[in-house]
Design a binder for these strands. Structure first.
Length: 338
DNA sequence: AAAGTCTTCAACCGCCGGCGA
DNA sequence: CTCGCCGGCGGTTGAAGACTT
């Protein structure tokens, strides 16, 4: 039954950051003797550390094959894809990223990727769009929205630019989702909750979302919708131009309503049969792109400006992990060949 | 310049499963 | 079968540095 903690206080083992001297002792020992029994290693190596601490230090930091430095865009894409399939299986993800440790990937996910997905309105757990998560204000601020938009016609213009771009810029928001959001907020006949559910489910089908997890991710939308319905009357959609409530613009937009995260070209790389040896099916995968965005800032802005992958191009949902991994290997192979 | 706040990430913790006695 | 050991995993923490006010 259970075992005592590996680092008992009474035996005076050191904790906390490693010193260069300790590192060197560990490296020297492993170079000479290899690593086998972590429990006895520190004693043999002359370290006042527990075996667990030594193993962690070696596998996460001192190992010679550790790759240091920033994650490349390709690595980041891989992490996101694998996470969409495997979830928080950091070691499994790390196994697919040579030189990266599970700890490093976990940290990178929590400090960078997760935040970015949230900002885009993508649930980092399910990888599906969440209307209640998108930081719409940051999207708007980062592009064409400005504070002088209180006139109605201007509002329509902004929204149409959001949907269609303006000739110079690409659209920022998936028009389908924008329609969904608009429709949700403008439809005044929502007494029948069953109908609401049906409407949402239709859009889920559009995203090929299957499974309780994905379905659940939409529930907050409905909750929030009902709250807002109570607070303010909604307008009806006029023609194809969506309209948001005329007052409360800023508050409204900042109230965590999300329109749509931007799926990108990378999705088509993975989902288009012509470029994929094994057609990849993964609607819950969150695809982010751009090979041209390398710095953090560039990545950030690219996330908001990539092309949209139309919902009609999204393949059927059915995870084929082996196919995916096979695809990755083939892709890597050809990347190397090229 | 100083104080306060936020972010990052190395390291720790507790738990689990595999394995041998 | 049970027990104890060990390696490994994922979640969490907190010191240090970066950034903001």
């Amino acid at each position: 039954m259970g075992r005592s903690p590996c680092c008992e206080k009474k035996n005076g083992l050191k904790k906390g950051p490693w010193t260069p001297e300790e590192d060197q002792k560990l490296i020297d020992y492993i170079n000479n003797h290899g690593y086998g029994n972590w429990r006895t290693l520190p004693k043999n190596a002359g370290l006042q550390r527990c075996g667990k601490s030594c193993r962690l230090r070696w596998t996460n930091y001192l190992r010679p094959d550790i790759k240091r430095g920033r994650f490349s865009f390709e690595e980041e894409e891989t992490i996101i894809q694998l996470h969409s399939i495997m979830g928080n299986k950091w070691s499994a993800i790390a196994a697919r990223l040579p030189g990266r440790t599970d700890n490093e990937i976990k940290n990178y996910w929590n400090t960078h990727i997760r935040k970015r997905l949230l900002k885009m309105g993508i649930d980092p757990v399910t990888h599906s769009p969440r209307l209640d998560l998108l930081d719409i204000s940051s999207i708007l601020n980062s592009s064409l929205y400005n504070s002088s938009h209180h006139h109605h016609h201007q509002q329509h213009m902004h929204m149409s630019r959001l949907m269609m771009g303006d000739g110079h810029r690409q659209p920022l928001v998936n028009p389908e989702i924008l329609k969904l959001a608009t429709s949700l907020f403008s439809n005044q006949n929502h007494q029948n909750t069953h109908e609401n559910q049906t409407e949402v489910n239709q859009y889920q089908i559009g995203y090929n979302m299957i499974g309780n997890q994905e379905l659940q991710s939409w529930f907050p939308i409905m909750d929030q919708f009902e709250e807002v319905q109570d607070l303010m009357p909604m307008k009806t959609v006029q023609d194809s131009v969506p309209s948001f409530p005329s007052n409360h613009d800023d508050d409204y937009l900042k109230s965590n309503f999300v329109l749509e995260p931007y799926y990108s070209d990378f999705a088509s790389v993975l989902t288009t049969p012509s470029s994929s040896p094994t057609p990849l099916n993964s609607s819950s995968a969150t695809y982010i792109n751009s090979s041209t965005c390398s710095t953090e800032d560039e990545k950030e802005s690219c996330y908001y400006s990539n092309n949209i992958a139309s919902t009609s191009e999204i393949p059927d949902y059915s995870f084929d992990v082996n196919g995916f991994l096979q695809f990755q290997e083939t892709k890597n192979h050809w990347d190397n060949v090229i």
